[in-house]
Computed example of a mutant assay.
Amino acid sequence: MQEIWMFTAVALMIVMVPGVDSLLVLKNTMIHGKKAGFFTMVGIVVALFVWTTLAVLGLATIISKSIVVFLFIKYAGAAYLVYLGIQSWRAKAQNMMLQEQITPNQNKNASLSCMVQGITTDLLNPKTLLLYVTLMPQFIQPEFNVNSQLILLAGILIVLSIVWLGIVIFVINGIRKWFMKPVVQSVFNKMTGVLLIGIGVRIAKEQ
């Protein structure tokens, strides 16, 4: 039981520290509204479920030990973040519209795109992989069922992610109307772009 509480505290800090997930949810909520933020969060959660499944099957450890596969995930993830950053930098201010001004078809496409972004960034995030194969095992007691403990710890991580990202969506959607000025939109897009590109470059350069 002590290990569970310790992991919960560590996982909470990991989730709350500003990173790719929070930045992506923030960006999509600000640009497209709370529905897009929610779909981004759904994509992130789906990716976490995939990583949990791979970990339970033992495939996550195999992936982490394969230099070729690990480097592919690392550089593909970095490249994707740079791509999203460039997109954000080049985005026009008028694309940042209030939800009611977007047609149903545009809204659907934006939501699906945001969910794909959430899935892709987390599946190609080497830090998420390392979390499953290096951090979680430290809180698992070998005398008990390992897979059950792994699923429990992953469940805690997923619940904390949903709660925290939900708070981000709620807060950002609440202040979103103050960011509708073209100048503010343009600055926000460029700042987000720089951050995404910076994170991508940092991931690519990490040893």
Score class of each variant (00 low, 15 high):
78 A>R: 03
88 S>G: 02
28 N>A: 05
95 N>H: 03
41 M>D: 05
175 I>Q: 05
115 M>G: 08
55 A>P: 00
63 I>Q: 12
144 F>S: 13
80 Y>T: 08
130 L>F: 15
116 V>G: 04
200 G>R: 00
150 L>W: 06
188 F>S: 02
52 T>M: 06
105 N>A: 14
145 N>I: 04
63 I>V: 09
31 I>G: 09
161 S>C: 15
131 L>T: 08
114 C>K: 06
122 D>W: 08
128 T>F: 10
181 K>P: 01
137 P>R: 10
23 L>E: 03
122 D>T: 12
44 I>V: 15
115 M>Y: 10
94 Q>S: 12
157 L>M: 15
131 L>C: 12
207 Q>L: 10
9 A>Y: 12
181 K>V: 08
11 A>N: 01
91 A>Y: 02
185 Q>V: 11
46 V>G: 01
100 E>A: 09
115 M>E: 03
112 L>E: 08
140 I>Y: 04
183 V>D: 03
164 W>G: 07
107 N>L: 12
148 S>H: 14
162 I>Y: 15
9 A>V: 05
149 Q>W: 10
107 N>D: 04
166 G>D: 02
96 M>V: 05
40 T>Y: 02
107 N>P: 04
51 W>G: 13
164 W>Y: 14
164 W>E: 01
49 F>I: 01
160 L>Q: 07
128 T>L: 14
3 E>P: 01
13 M>W: 02
103 T>Y: 06
176 R>C: 11
